[in-house]
Amino acid sequence: MSIGIKHNSIARGGGALSSSLPCRIKKHRYSKRMLRTSLQCWVFLIPVSVGMVVFAATPIFMSLFFSFTNYNGAFISQIGLFNFKRLFDFSSVAGERFLNSMRVTFIYVIANMAFCTVLSYALALFLHRKMKGIGVVRLLFYLPCLIPGFISGFIYMAIFRYSASGTTGLINTWLLNLGLPQATFFSAKSTAIPTLVFTSVFGLGGGMIMLLAAFSNIPPTLYEAARLDGAGYFKQLFHITIPLSTPIVFYNLVTSLIAGLQTFGTYAAYGTGPEEEFNFMAVEIYRMAFSYHNYGLACAEAYLLFVIVGLLSIIMFKFSGWVHYGDD
């Protein structure tokens, strides 16, 4: 799985011929130089390797072991494949719930990725200019990201609450004062996820900052050359800005995919939502582990989630030919 490097054959001695020769001797030949470089590179990787083994490998392998058992947090009494069998049997309640959580997670992730990528890119473009006080404006756009997670959940709930007979949230109070009917926001199945995707507009600042950093990495000489050639704003946008910022856009897409598939923060603020609409996969896993105390099943679900995320990431990387790197 390579990050867009398509020309690995040069690294192997023998070049283009190597793949066609049936002879094994020349196929994977590592020069002395390659070995020396590799050794040096692995020295760089010592901290992360130690961290990987101690902090990541042990918990991961332990929970992988648990997924084949019925560990409940205190003891194990059965070992076998029953957790996985149960999840793939869609007539079982657990399997059905897992399927439902997959559905809501995918809907949310796709909507969120599209919404956030496009909007944060547009916002970054809009704020990438030398205007008076642009620094303050950028700061103001970034401010909502600085509100801690659980507080922002409580604030959004206070803003968007719907109640047929009691305190309504801020926006519904305004609507009622204007004589309009209340909007159901988080309380109805059809509007719950769109409202959640909308609240991510308050978090656009983070992606925007990164994109602004990426834009400033583009040498201004390119723009000047383009302007001299008579290119207008949109031509410059499509031929310079977008291609050269693709590494960061790609990073944003991959991280929002990985983070989105593991959305969990909504549970503390909104619970599982109307008719389990906010029962995302990570929330389902948490409930299975700490409410039903069926830790083994939760681990099995977690590894299925891992496989899904892994496959999707591999697909994303394979189809990342559109990313333009400076070293190609």
Partner: peptide
Amino acid sequence: CVAVMCFSAAACNGNMFRF
């Protein structure tokens, strides 16, 4: 990988299994 897996399995206390 195998070493880590064995290590983590061995790290589990015998008390944990209750068949």
